[in-house]
């Protein structure tokens, strides 16, 4: 670094202060949710610094006794399965769009975005009526398929952009060695585009994991997901803030290690998309 010591200036201090302020903003709601999770009902409205030791594990037993663990399991299964399925059929499609010959690539990319953008309020009723006729209401299969609406366009789009970075020569060499196209995809292209593929899977999982609206409409008691089950703590005469906060924390915790592990892949893969 050509800079000397005296360059640690007021401006840099201001920069560091800004970063710390942003970090505080990012963490405050999380810390607050943790605080609420351990507060007894009687002290919810007492500032934590006035009675910092009044803590309870009651909310854990409330949560354990509720439908929430079951809903969490449903969320994991449906988000996981829809991600796997979307990857299974979306990545080959992304590959075909990245390397195949087509004059309609722009249309395809627009269409994918469009599907990603369609307002769920509008098509959830037709989807509901469709499901009614084929018996998919309140089934895992139905919810997984609905999540494909959300995840598949993203998977195709995102794997397309990352696999577009793989050099054509690599693919052609592999094909000339006698591999089939599918073998080429699994043996050469996917490993070469690994960061992008991992990032795609993580983003797809998060989208399905996040969903509230689809689950609200097409699940019933058997397949209710965690985001919908949280709303059950808002009952008449009482909003159970402790359980809500704890449920939010529980819903967040499993995905934190994933995102911390995966964020560098996301950056790498998005790098592919934005630098070109």
């Amino acid at each position: 670094m050509p800079r000397s010591k005296h360059s640690f200036s007021l401006k840099q201090a201001a920069g560091v202060a800004m970063m710390l302020a942003f970090a505080f903003f990012a963490l405050l709601p999380i810390i607050w949710a943790l605080v609420l999770s351990f507060r007894p009902t009687s002290h919810l409205f007492v500032p934590i610094w006035e009675a910092p030791t009044v803590l309870t594990l009651d909310n854990f037993s409330t949560l354990a006794r509720s439908d929430f663990p079951f809903a969490l399991f449903n969320s994991l299964v449906t988000a996981g399965a829809s991600t796997a399925l979307a990857m299974l059929i979306g990545v080959p499609a992304g590959f075909a769009l990245a390397k195949g010959r087509s004059h309609r690539k722009f249309i395809a990319s627009w269409l994918l975005l469009l599907l990603r953008m369609a307002p769920p309020v509008g098509f959830v009723i037709p989807l509901f009526l469709l499901y009614l006729n084929v018996g998919l209401i309140d089934t895992w299969a139905g919810l997984i398929a609905a999540y494909m609406v959300l995840t598949l366009p993203l998977v195709v789009w995102s794997s397309w952009t990352s696999m577009a970075q793989v050099p054509d020569e690599l693919i052609e060499a592999c094909l000339l060695d006698g591999a089939t196209l599918f073998q080429t995809l699994t043996k050469v292209v996917i490993p070469a585009a690994r960061p992008g593929i991992i990032a795609t899977a993580v983003l797809a999982f998060l989208i399905a994991w996040n969903d509230f609206f689809f689950a609200l409409i097409i699940t019933r008691s058997d397949t209710v997901t965690a985001p919908v089950a949280i709303m059950n703590f808002v009952s008449y005469a009482r909003v159970d803030w402790g359980s809500i906060a704890l449920a939010s924390v529980v819903l967040t915790v499993p995905t934190v290690p994933v995102i911390i592990f995966a964020n560098k892949y996301i950056v790498q893969s998005m790098g592919g998309a934005v630098k070109g």
Partner: peptide, 29 residues
């Protein structure tokens, strides 16, 4: 060119899934 058919085959499942689960409800909307 040689592999275009394979490419199309790779595209097909996604196209079908999109039509059934996304395009149909949109048409319904």
């Amino acid at each position: 060119t040689l592999f275009q058919r394979s490419y199309n085959q790779m595209l097909m499942p996604a196209v079908l899934a999109v039509i059934i689960f996304a395009v149909l409800p949109l048409v319904g909307m």
